[in-house]
Design a protein around this nucleic acid. Structure first.
Lengths: 240, 240
DNA sequence: CGGTTGCTTGAGATCCATCAATAGGAGTGG
DNA sequence: CCACTCCTATTGATGGATCTCAAGCAACCG
């Protein structure tokens, strides 16, 4: 399997062959979890950072009244913790949404790699700011976008993130989330996600069948949901 | 004026006198902006990170349809960008909510300080995870908490953050935000903030007059808004 | 004073949640 | 192959939380 983490980091600047080799060396050990299971890092007290090699995962929070909110969505190649994470920092749990393979990255090794190559150092910081920008835009969605706008914005964002690792093109991508997952992520109920998806379908912007999302008119979808790719720190954001 | 940044970082572990001195040296230059003005870093292309010395500020996003969402609230002692921020990363603007004094911290100097002291290195990473935890809990609030719960949660969080820098005690603190600011932050309208505040007042949990918030029963307010201080990576979270 | 800003209140509309029921597909076991 | 179950998607009816529009009031300030 190709290394999606390296594929993503290539979009920052130039990594040498040595750089990609030393990043690849961080990913030797692989673990697998089934869908709907937690990816625990409680056993190693934060000395390892989960890096998603394949599959989709999320970070989530459960409130005492039973409500559930997904905080971030992790795609193949995503590092689930900041690379300088400290041990014993309380944190929200991470769960697999599909079957997931991941690698536990040792904090000390990734730090050494960053210190030995300024290109790796920059790439890791870029990745962190990339993840941070996604979380911030999530706040904007939850605060000020309607249900259909949230869905549209999410689909535009996923299209861009997946295109970075060649898992999407302008026309669509595999989208394994259920309507209930979408509701958990976007702060809605599954029923309302269903009706809002129908609105998007009726207006001819997308199709969603058999876990595949087709985007028929990307530019219009972006306008509808106020998606401006410049919030993501990519130099050459692929345009429609 | 005391250095609130140092005051906050003291809660992580132990900083030596040399450490606090070299952090203090990062803050020599001070700038002032009036309330409601942007704190621009566009002039220096991201080579400087604004560090709030006094006053309250925010990061915000404006949508093309006129909607406005505050993303993060910055209090005295808060660093507005990750300390390893890269130049030319697109970012949301930061604005002063009250008159603000801040210092532009040079990226290269803060990096040097972190490399020369492992305690400073840890403290800066801790500060970053602290800020990140606040943003994540904001997502939970916007996604799954009601208007009164969002207000209650915000007040509990502010009480804790301000207590770290001795600007709050268990009974309350100075709270310069208008109801309109609260609406922009919490994804509500000013009218609804007003009515929800009245609910909180009627139930005897808080008073809010003349820019001062009194918390009458902190434990109850925390229960009401599902505030669990453990989301913030503080060892000894001051308890009510 | 008159203007501005922030707070408050009322009435009506809208978006979304809740509750409930049905239907289809995938897997499972007899 | 059929009966069964579980999960996901779908639809309808109703209610509630929040928004929108509009107006009035108090405090402050040049």
């Amino acid at each position: 399997m190709q290394n999606y983490f390296v594929a993503k980091l290539r979009h920052v600047g130039s990594l040498t062959n040595d750089d990609t080799a030393s990043i690849g060396a961080l990913c030797e050990q692989t673990r697998r979890v089934q869908a709907r299971r937690d990816i625990k890092s409680s056993d190693d007290e934060g000395r390892h950072l989960p890096l998603i090699l394949d599959g989709w995962a999320c970070r989530y929070s459960s409130l005492p009244n039973g409500k559930y909110q997904m905080i971030t969505l992790y795609l193949p190649g995503d590092l689930c913790e900041p690379f300088g994470a400290l041990p014993r920092c309380a944190d929200y749990p991470v769960a697999a949404l599909t079957p997931v393979t991941y690698t536990p990255v040792r904090v000390d090794l990734i730090r050494t790699a960053a210190e030995q190559s300024p290109r790796i150092y920059s790439a890791l910081w870029w990745d962190l700011m990339f993840a941070s920008a996604i979380e911030r835009e999530h706040i904007v969605s939850l605060g000020r976008r309607s249900a259909a706008e949230r869905l549209g914005h999410l689909f535009c964002e996923l299209q861009l993130r997946l295109q970075l690792i060649a898992l999407a093109d302008e026309r669509g991508f595999e989208m394994p989330l259920t309507q209930s997952d979408l509701a958990d992520l976007l702060g809605l109920t599954p029923v309302h996600v269903n009706r809002s998806l129908q609105d998007l379908r009726r207006s001819g912007l997308i199709s969603l069948r058999n876990r595949r999302l087709e985007i028929h008119r990307l530019a219009e979808l972006r306008d509808l949901s106020f998606f401006d790719p410049s919030y993501l720190p990519i130099d050459n954001a692929p345009s429609p």
